[in-house]
Amino acid sequence: MLDDRARMEAAKKEKVEQILAEFQLQEEDLKKVMRRMQKEMDRGLRLETHEEASVKMLPTYVRSTPEGSEVGDFLSLDLGGTNFRVMLVKVGEGEEGQWSVKTKHQMYSIPEDAMTGTAEMLFDYISECISDFLDKHQMKHKKLPLGFTFSFPVRHEDIDKGILLNWTKGFKASGAEGNNVVGLLRDAIKRRGDFEMDVVAMVNDTVATMISCYYEDHQCEVGMIVGTGCNACYMEEMQNVELVEGDEGRMCVNTEWGAFGDSGELDEFLLEYDRLVDESSANPGQQLYEKLIGGKYMGELVRLVLLRLVDENLLFHGEASEQLRTRGAFETRFVSQVESDTGDRKQIYNILSTLGLRPSTTDCDIVRRACESVSTRAAHMCSAGLAGVINRMRESRSEDVMRITVGVDGSVYKLHPSFKERFHASVRRLTPSCEITFIESEEGSGRGAALVSAVACKKACMLGQ
């Protein structure tokens, strides 16, 4: 009897593995994704193909990295998701002549009506938060230079001027797309009239992360975010950046690689679950690469896999709870928690219980395998993109072996128990001629924006502006 049951459990697990095998990517698959990513990057950089390229390769006008001589107080704003952060950054000489960066910050959550109302409502709310922060720190009387981390696709015309191309991540505030974001912020500050600010720089969160990590390690020339969304930036040779005049030196390019796949480059790798996630998203047909990796989508992918296993009578005796059938019910943090389970399955059992399920031991094991399959594919897909960037940098610099540091931020990278190990191992397999160091950014977005502002202020002083 026991043997029969054991055989049935083994057969069930084997069927589960057959279904989950769809998520496995072979090294040849990853090399294919990497080569296609490089081709799209090239198209994004070139003037004649930029418009139709899915990977936009947006110039950021960040050319210099901090040298350690900029000092002063800077205000930093960070808008990239449902939370908005205001930070005071003091850049100065530390002990023994070292450079020191001290920060104080406060988080504000953005109400739904500000995210989806008008641009005026959104930026009025942001300036209200700045006003509140300055009151708390008794700094209303000071006109501070301000660095703005704005983590949406922007076409820069200068370091302090950028046109919002399109909202992502659930934002829909009308009247912002096609307009200068810094102008919208300046107008809102003017409307309030109770404080003055000098907006000197606007950067993407990947750029802010790279600059913040450069402060720790001067070989950091790539910034990457794996959180709600997924994106990367890197220092490109100016001669390859056709959208900006000049051939000397390097400029940081914001790849906006989340949109890779929007022209069909990933079609052969998309599964039924991916198509369902895409169809029910706020932007169907867009940001397809990001939807395979980002935390906004990972939990939902797992939920759809679990429903398939229920329908195949391989999980929960073929019956799903009402909660499990509800879109968004299986949160991405559950994926991390399930994979963090120590082996007694308590954590998995508790999560499934909150979803109205009474799982068996085998159910718990199957749910864990589903989570591992989805998150491992995410790590491997992400590795193909980064390997594409790094191999490109090595080739354009004609280096036999390139040493490089990548600064990384984002909740999936930082909080998932195995993502970074799987990701690092896969990147290294795909970049055999590179020695890569990964560092995690601390308060990256805010500190990085302030350091970019410090560079901009120093330049302005040198130019006598």
Rank of each mutant, 00 (worst) to 15 (best):
G410K: 06
V101Y: 09
S340G: 08
S426Q: 08
H156I: 05
A53R: 05
L306P: 03
G285T: 07
G299D: 03
G193N: 10
Q98S: 09
N180E: 02
A11Q: 13
N204Q: 03
S281Q: 12
L165Y: 03
S433M: 07
F423S: 05
E279N: 15
I293E: 09
D78M: 06
C364R: 08
M393R: 11
S411F: 03
D311H: 04
S281W: 03
V55L: 08
K102H: 01
D160P: 10
L77N: 03
G444M: 01
D278I: 06
F133S: 06
Y108D: 00
E312I: 11
V101Q: 14
S263L: 09
C233A: 06
V310R: 14
G410Q: 04
K143L: 01
G249Q: 14
N240C: 06
D135T: 08
F171T: 00
T431F: 06
S411C: 04
M202H: 01
D365S: 09
A114V: 04
L122Y: 06
Q219G: 14
M251P: 15
V181L: 08
E196W: 08
L185N: 08
V200K: 00
N179E: 09
E319Q: 15
A282M: 13
P359Q: 09
V412W: 05
C457K: 11
A320D: 07
E435P: 11
Q287Y: 13
M462V: 13
S396E: 12
T209E: 10
G258V: 01
I130C: 01
M107E: 06
Q38Y: 07
R5V: 09
L45H: 02
S321A: 13
D311T: 08
E237W: 03
L430D: 06
L430V: 06
S76N: 02
Q18Y: 13
L122I: 07
E372I: 13
E435C: 11
K90Q: 15
T228D: 01
E70M: 06
P284A: 14
L243M: 10
E237C: 01
S127M: 01
V241D: 00
F419I: 02
K12S: 11
Q465N: 14
A119N: 01
P359Y: 11
L184P: 00
G183T: 13
G72F: 00
H141S: 05
F84A: 04
G68N: 13
T376Q: 10
D113I: 12
T209P: 00
T431E: 13
R392M: 08
R345S: 10
E300M: 06
Y214L: 15
Y273M: 05
T103L: 04
I293M: 08
K31L: 14
T431A: 12
E67T: 15
G261R: 03
R85Y: 06
A10N: 12
K39P: 06
S396G: 11
L463C: 09
T405P: 07
K296M: 09
E40C: 12
C233L: 03
C252E: 04
P432V: 13
S340Y: 10
Q287K: 05
T149H: 02
E27M: 14
T332L: 01
R155T: 00
D409I: 02
E245D: 11
A379R: 02
M121R: 09
D311P: 13
G80V: 02
V71H: 15
V408G: 06
M121K: 05
V401Y: 09
L288R: 12
L47I: 09
N350S: 14
E40P: 02
V408N: 04
M462I: 11
F152R: 01
E67I: 15
I293Q: 03
N204T: 02
G94T: 10
D363W: 02
G68V: 14
G388Y: 03
L146Y: 01
T65A: 14
N180V: 00
D73K: 09
I110C: 12
P66Y: 13
S445Y: 00
V16H: 13
G175F: 04
G446H: 00
L386C: 13
S64P: 15
T65D: 13
G261N: 05
K31D: 02
G227N: 08
F260S: 01
L79N: 04
I159S: 02
T361V: 10
V374P: 08
E265N: 00
P145F: 12
E442S: 13
T326Y: 15
K90W: 13
G299M: 03
